[in-house]
Design a binder for these strands. Sequence first.
DNA 1: ATAGGGTTAG
Length: 798
Amino acid sequence: MSAGTRLRTSSLEHCTILLESCIQSKSLSQGKLIHQCLLKTHFANLKNFDVLFEKLTDLYVACNELKIARHVFHKIPHRPKNVVLWNSLIRAYAWNGPFEEAIDLYYEMVGYGITPNRFTFPFVLKACSALKAVDEGREIHFDIKRLRLESNVYVSTALVDFYAKCGRLDDANEVFDEMHKRDVVAWNSMISGFSLHNGSYYEAIRFLVQMQKDVSPNSSTIVGVLPAVAQANSLRHGKEIHGFCVRRGFFGDVVVGTGILDVYGKCQCIDYARRIFDMMGVVKNEVTWSAMIGAYVVCDFMRDALELFCHLLVLKDDGIILSAATLATVLRVCAKLTDLSRGRCLHCYAIKSGFVSDLMVGNTLLSMYAKCGITDDAMRFFNEMDSRDAVSFSAIISGYVQNGNSEEGLRMFLKMQSSGMNPEKATMASILPACAHLAALQHGSCSHCYAIIRGFTADTMICNALIDMYAKCGRIATARKVFDRIYKRDIVSWNTMITAYGIHGIGTEALLLFDHMRAEGLKPDDVTFVCLISACSHSGHVAEGKYWFNAMTQDFGIIPRMEHYACMVDLLSRAGLFKEVHNFIEKMPLDPDVRVWGALLAACRVYKNVKLGEEVSKKIQRLGPESTGNFVLLSNMYSAVGRWDDAAEVRITQKEQGFKKSPGCSWIEISGVVHTFVGGGDRCHPLLTQISNKLDELLVDMKRLGYHAESSYVFQDIEEEEKEHVLLYHSEKLAIALGILSLSPNKPILVTKNLRVCGDCHTAIKFISLVTKRDITVRDASRFHHFKDGICNCGDFW
DNA sequence: ATAGGGTTAG
């Protein structure tokens, strides 16, 4: 060996020592300097050079410079046989990601014929669970079996943890059962696995009880089990664990304290939650604050939530920071309170702090705008978001639907699918009401199919939405089938089904169902009575309605709200019992609002009770008429008795006060295509000539059977013959004529109208059903009208 | 450990 080589070898040793010290002190800059020096020399020819590369790799791993580490690692001339080095690189990727790299490295290592050891597996399995890479994990499990490493407690615990985190609880359990010795970590893995998995909450709690025969739980056990206890709303277990933590001194741990606080919040024990919050003193961090604000939200204490948030803002300078989670929670408060101005302030803050780009914060902002009724801003924000997921789409869809724009909701639903996003349960829960609103049966039943395929029909909420959709699309029998087959009926299921019978005018079934419900031991709630009384009202069951209104308070302890009073006024006045209505309103403990008076005014209009109608109208004017409907009712009433000037006057006042009459609009679905007719005299439909001929032809037959146009429904003072013609072009008649023309004679006709069906149309359709011998159904703003053989099942109580 | 979208009546 020459002198030169000897010298170089000794510098090489120096380098090794230097690098080791860099690794110890994680001194990246010094290490990089040595790296550069090495690159300039020709040491690579020396056989010990591998060791240096290994040290360099170690250094970069230690300093978290994984890209460089991997680069250096690949430069090592002969693949290192050193398992330790492979392990350290795999470990680094398993901790910091990208996790795919860890798995790739594992396979690369095996490919080079290097045998992984007991340290390799926990790392690579951790990467698999982070990626939910079940198939890769299973393959690795086979490798473990081949190497007979299953008996190693660390390796098998890692397997349990991997399967548990991937939601493969059966596999996790199998490995767990075969372990002859289980340490606390293995138990914890099983418990947190059950905890994460929906519906296995009680299993998690059962394991906690069982483990205590074997090992003593530590604070990680508690942290793992608490989400399960919170989800299960199990106050009893929460209290037990609380006591356990006090005895074992776990309470000094913020994570434990915050977890227990969260349990109490989710169990609606706001006082306990607050007491823990106060007790935690200085160990609180921003998560604790966020959890406390969230607890107030869950318990519906919005003002307290806001107050605490303001308090947090004051503390911000003391090192407590505002997190994305807190911001999202407070935005939900704004949404619930429809506090738009505060919501906008927080939007500004989100922009300044950079939290807007957080997807959850963005989705909450989106939903805040939607819930405040500002769909334009919600949509603008949606378009500006740099990433969107299924939740963003669901939020914008529900925004449109809840603000009455179902068409746009449906459009976004289709757009969601064309952008490759799969609708989720919540999306379906928003789109079904849209189908119901539009009476879009085809879209509705397609959604039903999709829900079945995705397994959503096991969910009560989805079934409830389905019942409502079928009922509002005219398929009461199908609605009942869904109701009968529902896995677990809740109060909403019953209320929805009762309403379904109500809007179809089948009051007797509604009342029967109500009996049935009580027989099953379910307690009706305030909504049930709104549904029930309005069902009675639509079918003229006055006595039953009155009976249950009284029983509601006496037997069920429910204090009537304005809605209940409005229902009762509707029930009595539809039946023409004006004296009784008068007494009823006199005795009301609440000041009647516009809805109550509106119900009465509608009845005045039907019974042509002008004197009372005028009085009621004055009251409505004093309260501020809220909707155009009340003007229309009054004006219709005047024209019904020929007081054209008064009718015109009302319409002028209406315009002056800025109330626009939304045009009457009817639509019919024919082979999946929706045909819409707007206002009195839509001239746009391509088949208009045929439709108009059909109507003229029908008119002749109808007149022969005794029909004469009820000209009082024309609000203009024009010649009778002309009125007949105006009436003939009402949107619902046009839609029905198209139905007669396009659908085969044995098929029922379903037409939907946005407003209440006009009085003349109601009479005319009875005659049409007689002349054509067809079943005609019209769904108007308040209910279904089934016309058959010249009779409507609403009993003219429309 | 905390955080986003959801069914019924009026």
